[in-house]
Design a protein around this nucleic acid. Structure first.
Lengths: 230, 230
DNA sequence: GCCGGAGCGATCGTTCAACGATCCGGCGAA
DNA sequence: TTCGCCGGATCGTTGAACGATCGCTCCGGC
Protein backbone atom coordinates (compact mmCIF):
# COMPACT_ATOMS: atom_id res chain seq x y z
CA UNK A 1 0.00 0.00 0.00
CA UNK A 2 1.23 3.47 -0.84
CA UNK A 3 1.85 6.00 1.87
CA UNK A 4 -0.82 8.24 0.35
CA UNK A 5 -3.38 5.46 0.60
CA UNK A 6 -2.35 4.80 4.18
CA UNK A 7 -2.83 8.46 5.02
CA UNK A 8 -6.28 8.47 3.42
CA UNK A 9 -7.28 5.41 5.43
CA UNK A 10 -6.12 7.03 8.64
CA UNK A 11 -8.14 10.13 7.81
CA UNK A 12 -11.28 8.08 7.21
CA UNK A 13 -10.77 6.25 10.48
CA UNK A 14 -10.64 9.57 12.31
CA UNK A 15 -13.66 11.11 10.56
CA UNK A 16 -15.93 8.24 11.54
CA UNK A 17 -19.17 8.51 9.60
CA UNK A 18 -22.29 8.67 11.72
CA UNK A 19 -25.01 7.46 9.32
CA UNK A 20 -28.19 9.10 10.60
CA UNK A 21 -28.51 9.33 14.33
CA UNK A 22 -31.08 6.92 15.68
CA UNK A 23 -34.72 7.94 15.73
CA UNK A 24 -34.72 8.37 19.48
CA UNK A 25 -31.81 10.82 19.24
CA UNK A 26 -33.46 12.85 16.54
CA UNK A 27 -36.64 12.91 18.60
CA UNK A 28 -34.71 14.10 21.64
CA UNK A 29 -33.07 16.83 19.57
CA UNK A 30 -36.45 18.01 18.32
CA UNK A 31 -37.98 18.20 21.79
CA UNK A 32 -34.88 19.81 23.27
CA UNK A 33 -34.96 22.52 20.65
CA UNK A 34 -38.60 23.28 21.40
CA UNK A 35 -37.74 23.63 25.06
CA UNK A 36 -34.58 25.73 24.89
CA UNK A 37 -36.19 27.97 22.29
CA UNK A 38 -38.93 28.63 24.79
CA UNK A 39 -41.81 27.25 22.76
CA UNK A 40 -42.45 24.79 25.57
CA UNK A 41 -42.51 26.81 28.77
CA UNK A 42 -41.15 25.50 32.10
CA UNK A 43 -43.76 23.53 34.00
CA UNK A 44 -45.94 22.45 31.11
CA UNK A 45 -46.78 18.80 30.84
CA UNK A 46 -45.69 16.63 27.91
CA UNK A 47 -48.29 13.87 27.42
CA UNK A 48 -46.72 10.84 25.79
CA UNK A 49 -49.53 10.02 23.40
CA UNK A 50 -49.83 13.57 22.08
CA UNK A 51 -46.11 13.74 21.38
CA UNK A 52 -46.09 10.33 19.75
CA UNK A 53 -48.74 11.52 17.33
CA UNK A 54 -47.10 14.88 16.71
CA UNK A 55 -43.64 13.44 16.11
CA UNK A 56 -44.80 10.24 14.43
CA UNK A 57 -42.77 7.95 16.62
CA UNK A 58 -43.80 5.07 18.80
CA UNK A 59 -44.28 5.48 22.50
CA UNK A 60 -41.21 3.41 23.33
CA UNK A 61 -39.00 5.55 21.14
CA UNK A 62 -40.43 8.73 22.62
CA UNK A 63 -39.84 7.47 26.13
CA UNK A 64 -36.22 6.77 25.28
CA UNK A 65 -35.87 10.34 24.05
CA UNK A 66 -37.56 11.67 27.19
CA UNK A 67 -35.20 9.66 29.38
CA UNK A 68 -32.22 11.31 27.77
CA UNK A 69 -33.63 14.80 28.23
CA UNK A 70 -34.44 14.01 31.84
CA UNK A 71 -30.82 13.01 32.38
CA UNK A 72 -29.91 16.42 30.97
CA UNK A 73 -32.21 18.09 33.52
CA UNK A 74 -34.19 19.71 30.71
CA UNK A 75 -37.27 17.65 31.56
CA UNK A 76 -38.42 16.16 34.84
CA UNK A 77 -40.47 13.06 35.48
CA UNK A 78 -43.14 12.70 38.17
CA UNK A 79 -43.89 9.04 38.86
CA UNK A 80 -47.11 7.94 37.24
CA UNK A 81 -48.04 11.55 36.51
CA UNK A 82 -46.04 12.33 33.44
CA UNK A 83 -43.11 14.30 32.10
CA UNK A 84 -42.82 18.07 32.51
CA UNK A 85 -40.49 20.79 31.35
CA UNK A 86 -38.13 21.39 34.26
CA UNK A 87 -38.71 24.47 36.41
CA UNK A 88 -35.35 25.37 37.93
CA UNK A 89 -35.62 27.30 41.17
CA UNK A 90 -33.36 29.56 43.18
CA UNK A 91 -31.51 26.56 44.62
CA UNK A 92 -30.76 25.35 41.11
CA UNK A 93 -29.47 28.75 40.07
CA UNK A 94 -27.13 28.84 43.06
CA UNK A 95 -25.96 25.31 42.33
CA UNK A 96 -25.26 26.03 38.68
CA UNK A 97 -23.37 29.22 39.46
CA UNK A 98 -21.21 27.56 42.09
CA UNK A 99 -20.09 25.19 39.36
CA UNK A 100 -19.68 27.92 36.75
CA UNK A 101 -17.74 30.21 39.07
CA UNK A 102 -15.33 27.38 39.70
CA UNK A 103 -14.97 26.16 36.14
CA UNK A 104 -15.04 29.29 33.99
CA UNK A 105 -12.44 31.42 35.82
CA UNK A 106 -10.37 28.26 36.24
CA UNK A 107 -10.41 27.67 32.50
CA UNK A 108 -9.21 31.22 31.91
CA UNK A 109 -6.49 30.99 34.54
CA UNK A 110 -5.10 27.53 33.87
CA UNK A 111 -6.65 26.35 30.60
CA UNK A 112 -4.21 24.75 28.21
CA UNK A 113 -5.42 27.05 25.44
CA UNK A 114 -5.78 30.23 27.51
CA UNK A 115 -2.35 31.50 26.53
CA UNK A 116 -2.27 30.64 22.82
CA UNK A 117 -3.77 32.98 20.20
CA UNK A 118 -6.38 30.50 19.00
CA UNK A 119 -8.11 30.50 22.37
CA UNK A 120 -8.45 34.26 22.29
CA UNK A 121 -9.84 34.10 18.76
CA UNK A 122 -12.79 31.98 19.87
CA UNK A 123 -13.69 34.47 22.60
CA UNK A 124 -13.35 37.37 20.20
CA UNK A 125 -15.60 35.68 17.64
CA UNK A 126 -18.38 35.26 20.19
CA UNK A 127 -18.05 38.89 21.25
CA UNK A 128 -18.33 40.09 17.66
CA UNK A 129 -21.31 37.81 17.09
CA UNK A 130 -23.05 39.39 20.05
CA UNK A 131 -22.28 42.92 18.91
CA UNK A 132 -23.61 42.21 15.44
CA UNK A 133 -26.81 40.73 16.84
CA UNK A 134 -27.30 43.70 19.17
CA UNK A 135 -26.74 46.14 16.33
CA UNK A 136 -29.56 44.57 14.36
CA UNK A 137 -31.83 44.33 17.40
CA UNK A 138 -31.77 40.54 17.36
CA UNK A 139 -31.99 39.86 21.08
CA UNK A 140 -32.32 36.13 20.67
CA UNK A 141 -29.08 36.31 18.74
CA UNK A 142 -27.48 38.21 21.61
CA UNK A 143 -28.51 35.46 23.99
CA UNK A 144 -27.10 32.84 21.64
CA UNK A 145 -23.84 34.72 21.33
CA UNK A 146 -23.61 34.96 25.09
CA UNK A 147 -23.89 31.19 25.33
CA UNK A 148 -21.23 30.83 22.65
CA UNK A 149 -18.94 33.11 24.64
CA UNK A 150 -19.18 31.01 27.78
CA UNK A 151 -18.78 27.86 25.75
CA UNK A 152 -15.60 29.32 24.29
CA UNK A 153 -14.40 30.16 27.80
CA UNK A 154 -14.62 26.58 29.03
CA UNK A 155 -13.21 25.50 25.68
CA UNK A 156 -9.94 27.05 26.86
CA UNK A 157 -9.61 24.09 29.20
CA UNK A 158 -9.35 21.76 26.23
CA UNK A 159 -11.54 18.98 27.61
CA UNK A 160 -14.39 17.65 25.48
CA UNK A 161 -16.06 16.20 28.56
CA UNK A 162 -16.00 19.56 30.25
CA UNK A 163 -17.39 21.16 27.09
CA UNK A 164 -20.26 18.70 26.94
CA UNK A 165 -21.09 19.16 30.60
CA UNK A 166 -21.05 22.92 30.33
CA UNK A 167 -23.42 22.66 27.37
CA UNK A 168 -25.90 20.99 29.73
CA UNK A 169 -25.52 23.74 32.31
CA UNK A 170 -26.02 26.41 29.66
CA UNK A 171 -29.15 24.68 28.36
CA UNK A 172 -30.47 24.76 31.90
CA UNK A 173 -29.66 28.44 32.09
CA UNK A 174 -31.83 29.04 29.05
CA UNK A 175 -34.75 27.49 30.90
CA UNK A 176 -34.15 29.90 33.73
CA UNK A 177 -34.02 32.88 31.39
CA UNK A 178 -37.34 31.84 29.93
CA UNK A 179 -38.78 31.60 33.42
CA UNK A 180 -37.88 35.17 34.27
CA UNK A 181 -38.96 36.36 30.86
CA UNK A 182 -36.88 39.48 30.31
CA UNK A 183 -34.27 38.22 27.90
CA UNK A 184 -33.52 41.51 26.20
CA UNK A 185 -32.02 43.85 28.76
CA UNK A 186 -30.74 40.91 30.73
CA UNK A 187 -28.00 40.05 28.29
CA UNK A 188 -27.26 43.54 27.05
CA UNK A 189 -24.96 44.61 29.92
CA UNK A 190 -22.84 41.52 29.44
CA UNK A 191 -21.86 42.42 25.91
CA UNK A 192 -19.19 44.80 27.10
CA UNK A 193 -18.15 42.63 30.01
CA UNK A 194 -17.59 39.73 27.60
CA UNK A 195 -15.50 42.07 25.51
CA UNK A 196 -13.49 43.13 28.54
CA UNK A 197 -12.71 39.52 29.41
CA UNK A 198 -11.74 38.76 25.83
CA UNK A 199 -9.42 41.80 25.77
CA UNK A 200 -7.67 40.76 28.96
CA UNK A 201 -7.20 37.21 27.68
CA UNK A 202 -5.74 38.47 24.41
CA UNK A 203 -3.34 40.66 26.37
CA UNK A 204 -2.24 37.63 28.36
CA UNK A 205 -3.53 39.13 31.61
CA UNK A 206 -5.17 35.84 32.54
CA UNK A 207 -5.39 36.53 36.25
CA UNK A 208 -7.21 39.80 35.66
CA UNK A 209 -9.49 38.17 33.10
CA UNK A 210 -10.41 35.41 35.54
CA UNK A 211 -11.14 37.92 38.30
CA UNK A 212 -13.33 40.00 36.01
CA UNK A 213 -15.18 36.88 34.86
CA UNK A 214 -15.75 35.76 38.44
CA UNK A 215 -17.14 39.13 39.46
CA UNK A 216 -19.31 39.14 36.38
CA UNK A 217 -20.74 35.70 37.13
CA UNK A 218 -21.43 36.67 40.73
CA UNK A 219 -23.29 39.71 39.51
CA UNK A 220 -25.33 37.72 37.02
CA UNK A 221 -26.26 35.18 39.68
CA UNK A 222 -27.42 37.91 42.03
CA UNK A 223 -29.57 39.50 39.37
CA UNK A 224 -31.16 36.20 38.39
CA UNK A 225 -31.91 35.27 41.98
CA UNK A 226 -33.43 38.69 42.54
CA UNK A 227 -35.59 38.28 39.45
CA UNK A 228 -36.79 34.87 40.56
CA UNK A 229 -37.60 35.98 44.08
CA UNK A 230 -39.07 39.30 43.15
CA UNK B 1 -52.42 22.91 62.80
CA UNK B 2 -49.92 22.63 65.64
CA UNK B 3 -46.36 23.77 65.20
CA UNK B 4 -45.18 20.20 65.79
CA UNK B 5 -47.38 18.93 63.00
CA UNK B 6 -46.12 21.66 60.70
CA UNK B 7 -42.53 20.68 61.48
CA UNK B 8 -43.27 17.02 60.77
CA UNK B 9 -44.84 17.93 57.47
CA UNK B 10 -41.88 20.04 56.49
CA UNK B 11 -39.52 17.17 57.34
CA UNK B 12 -41.51 14.78 55.15
CA UNK B 13 -41.48 17.24 52.31
CA UNK B 14 -37.70 17.45 52.50
CA UNK B 15 -37.13 13.69 52.79
CA UNK B 16 -39.17 13.04 49.67
CA UNK B 17 -39.93 9.34 49.51
CA UNK B 18 -38.78 7.64 46.35
CA UNK B 19 -41.02 4.57 46.23
CA UNK B 20 -38.83 2.11 44.37
CA UNK B 21 -36.83 3.60 41.59
CA UNK B 22 -38.21 2.54 38.24
CA UNK B 23 -37.20 -0.85 36.87
CA UNK B 24 -35.01 0.71 34.22
CA UNK B 25 -33.04 2.60 36.88
CA UNK B 26 -32.54 -0.49 38.99
CA UNK B 27 -31.43 -2.37 35.90
CA UNK B 28 -28.95 0.37 35.04
CA UNK B 29 -27.59 0.27 38.59
CA UNK B 30 -27.12 -3.48 38.39
CA UNK B 31 -25.24 -3.33 35.09
CA UNK B 32 -23.16 -0.35 36.19
CA UNK B 33 -22.06 -2.17 39.31
CA UNK B 34 -20.97 -5.19 37.27
CA UNK B 35 -18.92 -2.90 35.07
CA UNK B 36 -17.23 -0.69 37.65
CA UNK B 37 -16.49 -3.73 39.81
CA UNK B 38 -14.64 -5.15 36.87
CA UNK B 39 -16.77 -8.25 36.38
CA UNK B 40 -17.53 -7.02 32.87
CA UNK B 41 -14.22 -6.11 31.28
CA UNK B 42 -13.81 -3.19 28.87
CA UNK B 43 -14.54 -4.17 25.30
CA UNK B 44 -16.85 -7.10 25.96
CA UNK B 45 -20.14 -7.15 24.19
CA UNK B 46 -23.48 -7.02 26.01
CA UNK B 47 -26.10 -8.87 23.92
CA UNK B 48 -29.56 -7.57 24.61
CA UNK B 49 -31.38 -10.88 24.71
CA UNK B 50 -28.91 -12.49 27.07
CA UNK B 51 -29.16 -9.59 29.52
CA UNK B 52 -32.94 -9.54 29.30
CA UNK B 53 -33.03 -13.16 30.35
CA UNK B 54 -30.40 -12.77 33.06
CA UNK B 55 -32.02 -9.69 34.62
CA UNK B 56 -35.62 -10.72 33.95
CA UNK B 57 -36.60 -7.46 32.31
CA UNK B 58 -38.04 -6.77 28.90
CA UNK B 59 -35.87 -5.67 26.04
CA UNK B 60 -37.35 -2.16 26.02
CA UNK B 61 -36.57 -1.66 29.68
CA UNK B 62 -33.06 -2.98 29.22
CA UNK B 63 -32.48 -0.66 26.29
CA UNK B 64 -33.57 2.28 28.40
CA UNK B 65 -31.03 1.26 31.05
CA UNK B 66 -28.34 0.86 28.40
CA UNK B 67 -29.09 4.31 27.03
CA UNK B 68 -28.47 5.84 30.42
CA UNK B 69 -25.17 4.03 30.88
CA UNK B 70 -24.11 5.09 27.40
CA UNK B 71 -24.79 8.70 28.34
CA UNK B 72 -22.51 8.12 31.33
CA UNK B 73 -19.78 6.86 28.98
CA UNK B 74 -19.67 3.55 30.82
CA UNK B 75 -21.01 1.69 27.81
CA UNK B 76 -20.73 2.46 24.12
CA UNK B 77 -23.11 1.65 21.28
CA UNK B 78 -22.10 0.61 17.77
CA UNK B 79 -25.00 1.03 15.36
CA UNK B 80 -26.63 -2.27 14.56
CA UNK B 81 -23.78 -4.17 16.16
CA UNK B 82 -24.59 -3.95 19.81
CA UNK B 83 -23.57 -2.43 23.10
CA UNK B 84 -20.07 -2.80 24.54
CA UNK B 85 -18.30 -1.89 27.74
CA UNK B 86 -16.41 1.30 26.96
CA UNK B 87 -12.65 1.07 26.39
CA UNK B 88 -11.21 4.46 27.30
CA UNK B 89 -7.94 5.22 25.57
CA UNK B 90 -5.05 7.59 26.15
CA UNK B 91 -7.00 10.50 24.66
CA UNK B 92 -9.80 9.87 27.13
CA UNK B 93 -7.38 9.80 30.04
CA UNK B 94 -5.90 13.12 28.98
CA UNK B 95 -9.37 14.60 28.56
CA UNK B 96 -10.55 13.44 31.97
CA UNK B 97 -7.44 14.73 33.69
CA UNK B 98 -7.66 18.13 32.06
CA UNK B 99 -11.09 18.42 33.61
CA UNK B 100 -10.01 17.04 36.97
CA UNK B 101 -6.95 19.27 37.18
CA UNK B 102 -9.17 22.25 36.64
CA UNK B 103 -11.98 21.26 38.98
CA UNK B 104 -10.31 19.58 41.93
CA UNK B 105 -7.65 22.17 42.76
CA UNK B 106 -10.23 24.85 42.07
CA UNK B 107 -12.59 23.31 44.61
CA UNK B 108 -9.82 23.33 47.20
CA UNK B 109 -8.81 26.90 46.45
CA UNK B 110 -12.20 28.57 46.13
CA UNK B 111 -14.77 26.01 47.31
CA UNK B 112 -17.42 27.45 49.59
CA UNK B 113 -16.73 24.66 52.10
CA UNK B 114 -12.96 24.59 51.75
CA UNK B 115 -12.42 26.86 54.73
CA UNK B 116 -14.99 25.48 57.15
CA UNK B 117 -14.18 22.51 59.45
CA UNK B 118 -16.85 20.25 57.97
CA UNK B 119 -15.17 20.21 54.59
CA UNK B 120 -11.90 19.07 56.16
CA UNK B 121 -13.74 16.35 58.05
CA UNK B 122 -14.95 14.73 54.83
CA UNK B 123 -11.42 14.61 53.45
CA UNK B 124 -10.07 13.22 56.70
CA UNK B 125 -12.73 10.50 56.76
CA UNK B 126 -11.77 9.30 53.30
CA UNK B 127 -8.09 9.26 54.26
CA UNK B 128 -8.81 7.18 57.35
CA UNK B 129 -10.99 4.83 55.32
CA UNK B 130 -8.11 4.28 52.94
CA UNK B 131 -5.60 3.66 55.72
CA UNK B 132 -7.89 1.14 57.38
CA UNK B 133 -8.39 -0.70 54.11
CA UNK B 134 -4.66 -0.75 53.42
CA UNK B 135 -3.93 -2.04 56.90
CA UNK B 136 -6.20 -5.02 56.31
CA UNK B 137 -4.84 -5.63 52.82
CA UNK B 138 -8.15 -4.73 51.21
CA UNK B 139 -6.90 -3.14 47.99
CA UNK B 140 -10.34 -2.82 46.51
CA UNK B 141 -11.25 -0.88 49.63
CA UNK B 142 -8.23 1.37 49.08
CA UNK B 143 -9.43 2.12 45.59
CA UNK B 144 -12.92 2.89 46.88
CA UNK B 145 -11.51 5.18 49.54
CA UNK B 146 -9.46 6.97 46.93
CA UNK B 147 -12.62 7.66 44.95
CA UNK B 148 -14.33 8.87 48.10
CA UNK B 149 -11.44 11.23 48.73
CA UNK B 150 -11.73 12.86 45.33
CA UNK B 151 -15.48 13.02 45.67
CA UNK B 152 -15.01 14.83 48.97
CA UNK B 153 -12.59 17.23 47.29
CA UNK B 154 -15.11 18.35 44.70
CA UNK B 155 -17.72 18.34 47.42
CA UNK B 156 -15.91 21.37 48.82
CA UNK B 157 -17.35 23.34 45.91
CA UNK B 158 -20.86 22.75 47.25
CA UNK B 159 -22.52 22.05 43.91
CA UNK B 160 -24.63 18.93 43.54
CA UNK B 161 -24.34 19.14 39.77
CA UNK B 162 -20.59 19.21 40.00
CA UNK B 163 -20.69 16.26 42.41
CA UNK B 164 -22.82 14.22 40.04
CA UNK B 165 -20.60 15.02 37.09
CA UNK B 166 -17.46 14.11 38.95
CA UNK B 167 -19.06 10.80 39.89
CA UNK B 168 -19.29 10.04 36.18
CA UNK B 169 -15.64 10.90 35.62
CA UNK B 170 -14.59 8.73 38.55
CA UNK B 171 -16.64 5.79 37.25
CA UNK B 172 -14.83 6.18 33.96
CA UNK B 173 -11.53 6.18 35.84
CA UNK B 174 -12.42 2.82 37.34
CA UNK B 175 -12.80 1.43 33.83
CA UNK B 176 -9.33 2.68 33.04
CA UNK B 177 -7.87 1.12 36.16
CA UNK B 178 -9.39 -2.20 35.18
CA UNK B 179 -7.85 -1.87 31.75
CA UNK B 180 -4.35 -1.48 33.13
CA UNK B 181 -4.94 -4.19 35.68
CA UNK B 182 -2.57 -3.30 38.49
CA UNK B 183 -4.92 -1.79 41.03
CA UNK B 184 -2.91 -2.58 44.14
CA UNK B 185 0.33 -0.66 43.97
CA UNK B 186 -1.32 1.97 41.81
CA UNK B 187 -3.34 3.45 44.61
CA UNK B 188 -0.93 2.80 47.45
CA UNK B 189 1.34 5.83 46.87
CA UNK B 190 -1.65 8.13 46.92
CA UNK B 191 -2.64 7.23 50.45
CA UNK B 192 -0.05 9.57 51.91
CA UNK B 193 -0.54 12.23 49.26
CA UNK B 194 -4.25 12.27 50.06
CA UNK B 195 -3.32 12.66 53.71
CA UNK B 196 -0.97 15.53 52.89
CA UNK B 197 -3.71 17.37 51.02
CA UNK B 198 -6.16 16.80 53.86
CA UNK B 199 -3.61 18.13 56.36
CA UNK B 200 -3.01 21.29 54.38
CA UNK B 201 -6.74 21.90 54.02
CA UNK B 202 -7.28 21.47 57.73
CA UNK B 203 -4.51 23.95 58.40
CA UNK B 204 -6.19 26.42 56.10
CA UNK B 205 -3.26 26.42 53.69
CA UNK B 206 -5.62 26.11 50.74
CA UNK B 207 -3.17 27.39 48.14
CA UNK B 208 -0.55 24.83 49.13
CA UNK B 209 -3.18 22.09 49.22
CA UNK B 210 -4.35 22.96 45.72
CA UNK B 211 -0.79 22.99 44.40
CA UNK B 212 -0.04 19.63 45.95
CA UNK B 213 -3.26 18.18 44.55
CA UNK B 214 -2.47 19.50 41.07
CA UNK B 215 1.01 18.01 41.10
CA UNK B 216 -0.41 14.75 42.37
CA UNK B 217 -3.02 14.59 39.60
CA UNK B 218 -0.40 15.37 36.97
CA UNK B 219 1.72 12.55 38.33
CA UNK B 220 -1.18 10.11 38.31
CA UNK B 221 -2.05 11.02 34.74
CA UNK B 222 1.50 10.46 33.59
CA UNK B 223 1.65 7.05 35.25
CA UNK B 224 -1.65 5.95 33.74
CA UNK B 225 -0.69 7.11 30.26
CA UNK B 226 2.61 5.28 30.59
CA UNK B 227 0.82 2.12 31.70
CA UNK B 228 -1.59 2.32 28.75
CA UNK B 229 1.13 2.91 26.19
CA UNK B 230 3.59 0.47 27.66
C1' DG C 1 -71.59 23.80 54.28
C1' DC C 2 -67.54 21.03 53.98
C1' DC C 3 -64.81 17.10 54.89
C1' DG C 4 -63.47 12.47 53.66
C1' DG C 5 -63.96 8.17 51.18
C1' DA C 6 -65.74 5.38 46.77
C1' DG C 7 -65.79 5.20 42.00
C1' DC C 8 -64.13 6.34 37.41
C1' DG C 9 -61.44 7.83 33.48
C1' DA C 10 -56.89 8.85 31.88
C1' DT C 11 -52.25 8.04 31.79
C1' DC C 12 -48.09 5.82 33.05
C1' DG C 13 -44.78 1.73 33.66
C1' DT C 14 -43.79 -2.52 31.69
C1' DT C 15 -44.04 -6.41 28.82
C1' DC C 16 -44.51 -9.10 24.56
C1' DA C 17 -44.43 -10.26 19.69
C1' DA C 18 -43.30 -8.88 15.27
C1' DC C 19 -41.13 -6.62 11.02
C1' DG C 20 -37.62 -4.64 8.30
C1' DA C 21 -32.75 -3.09 8.32
C1' DT C 22 -28.11 -3.86 9.04
C1' DC C 23 -24.01 -6.23 10.12
C1' DC C 24 -20.89 -10.37 10.21
C1' DG C 25 -19.11 -14.58 8.45
C1' DG C 26 -18.63 -17.98 4.90
C1' DC C 27 -19.02 -19.75 0.22
C1' DG C 28 -18.14 -19.70 -4.57
C1' DA C 29 -16.42 -17.40 -8.99
C1' DA C 30 -13.21 -14.47 -11.56
C1' DT D 1 -6.14 -13.68 -3.59
C1' DT D 2 -9.99 -10.64 -4.15
C1' DC D 3 -14.54 -9.66 -5.00
C1' DG D 4 -19.54 -10.37 -4.85
C1' DC D 5 -23.32 -12.73 -2.94
C1' DC D 6 -26.05 -15.17 0.55
C1' DG D 7 -27.73 -16.68 5.06
C1' DG D 8 -28.03 -16.11 10.09
C1' DA D 9 -28.03 -13.27 14.00
C1' DT D 10 -28.92 -9.07 16.17
C1' DC D 11 -30.42 -4.47 16.31
C1' DG D 12 -33.88 -0.45 15.70
C1' DT D 13 -38.60 0.44 15.80
C1' DT D 14 -43.33 -0.34 16.03
C1' DG D 15 -48.04 -1.63 17.80
C1' DA D 16 -50.87 -3.55 21.13
C1' DA D 17 -51.82 -5.05 25.61
C1' DC D 18 -52.14 -5.39 30.93
C1' DG D 19 -52.03 -3.93 35.58
C1' DA D 20 -50.96 0.05 38.55
C1' DT D 21 -51.36 4.62 39.92
C1' DC D 22 -52.98 9.26 39.79
C1' DG D 23 -56.47 13.21 39.65
C1' DC D 24 -61.10 14.27 39.65
C1' DT D 25 -65.94 13.89 40.64
C1' DC D 26 -69.59 12.55 43.27
C1' DC D 27 -71.93 11.42 47.32
C1' DG D 28 -73.04 10.55 52.22
C1' DG D 29 -72.14 11.92 57.04
C1' DC D 30 -70.88 15.33 60.45
Amino acid sequence: MTDAAADALAALARARIVPTATTAERTADAVREQVVEGRLAPGVRLPEQAFCDALSVSRNTLREAFSQLIAERILARAQHRGVFVATPGVADVRDVYRARRLVEPGAVRHGVHAADPLGGKALRAAVEEGRAAAASGDWTGVADANQHFHRAVVGLAGSTRLDAWMALLLAEMRLIFHRIGAVEDFHAPYLERNAAVADLVEQGRLEDAAAELDAYLADAEARIVAALEG
